[in-house]
Write a protein that binds this DNA or RNA. Sequence first.
DNA 1: AATGCAGCGTACCGTACGGTACGGTTCCTT
DNA 2: AAGGAACCGTACCGTACGGTACGCTGCATT
Lengths: 240, 240
Amino acid sequence: MSAATTEMATTAGETYSPRQNAVLESALALLVEGGERALTTAGVARAANCSKESLYKWFGDRDGLLAAMITFQSSQVRAEPQSSGAVGRAALRAQLIGIGANLLRVLAGDMSLALNRLAIGQARRDEAKLGRLLREHGRKPIETRLSALLEAGRAAGLIAFDDTREAYRTLYGLVVRDMHVRLLLGDGLDDQSPAARAEQAIDQFLRLYGAERTTGLSPEGRHGTGPAPERAGAGNERTG
Amino acid sequence: MSAATTEMATTAGETYSPRQNAVLESALALLVEGGERALTTAGVARAANCSKESLYKWFGDRDGLLAAMITFQSSQVRAEPQSSGAVGRAALRAQLIGIGANLLRVLAGDMSLALNRLAIGQARRDEAKLGRLLREHGRKPIETRLSALLEAGRAAGLIAFDDTREAYRTLYGLVVRDMHVRLLLGDGLDDQSPAARAEQAIDQFLRLYGAERTTGLSPEGRHGTGPAPERAGAGNERTG
DNA sequence: AATGCAGCGTACCGTACGGTACGGTTCCTT
DNA sequence: AAGGAACCGTACCGTACGGTACGCTGCATT
């Protein structure tokens, strides 16, 4: 923190000076510890040993600070080097399980939960600036990476699907289920380890999308989306 | 509002008088419209034409009001009469699709989103009173209902699973995927209709758990949970 | 050495909110 | 008719927060 204060830090778009980074880290720590209510401008200034005036000069206002925290945190996160080895059946499975387990660990992390709670708490019916930022910086990357892997698997003839996004979402649902929202609501983690959970989910996914051995499926059973019986649900529950 | 102010409203646990119900409805409307920041005691009092003093007498403090809003809202929601007709293959599928579509509609509703945003925004790493309330009142019911249906299907030999909760969660994940969190973060709805989405998901679920026609699955492929290769994920992403 | 800039710490201001107190009104009870 | 309970509307209080202004220090340039 003392070495090089002069270096400008490649100011590309949303990058900040080292001093500002340190301040943002303090703010993030504060957020993780005490939630949004702990994120007062005075509190951040005190925790980071900087002046409120500097905060406002650097980030504009409180919302700017919150936005900066999100972009900063996501910039800190670099995806692993994408081990793009040749894809075999087992290798694909292993890679999917690895990414799935990683996803679970990320979502269950204190930092991720705190930022998601912050963005969700701010979101209104129409406006959701922080939410958009978080979707853009937090979810897009993993979707891109997973989608690429899925398409590689398809190219290798290991899995079959028409719509990549559809397949990705199914995979996501099988892996994460309702864990994320439950954690956001303060529930505890599952007893199952991320690796075990991911393995189970990936095996289910491969059972649905695998193309290695033509199972005894009815021909129309693969991506059926035909007109449904509709059976309009009777009740009127509203409290998910 | 004038008719019967004397009737006590079966005061069982968390029930309120008609006047209080009306106040809570106003508060909920306020929450849906403007988010948590719109939920000031003065604002609620003004919107409901009541005095702040009454608010504090009835609900204790602001947190008590928030809790009351959740319990009230969930009390308003009664599950549909559970059409417990005889279960056939098609009937089970139709019922599952109906419940799934209903679930999607509920989760995407303004009221549900507003309450979830409220509870999530309040939640901290340790304390999450509202979150627990919401999980208890909002999610338990549908889990119970769906689980009962699944077990009925299993009893009829239509589907096979060991752990009901596991099966329920898989179903939930296939139906909801990441839609809920995306909506909470302010994203728009999918273009796909709830009914179509539910149908697709249920068909996937039945493909995984269906027992009607023994498909060409490897014997161990059903609920495999054996020790995994572990492949510890390399990266250190944190920003879900 | 003189100058200037960036930033720290503090004091300050206006506002908005949670919570309380009080007077007046309506309606029920006796 | 008298008394009282519930409740509305408003005024009030203390606090805490977002945002601004100012004086001071340390460092870099020249």
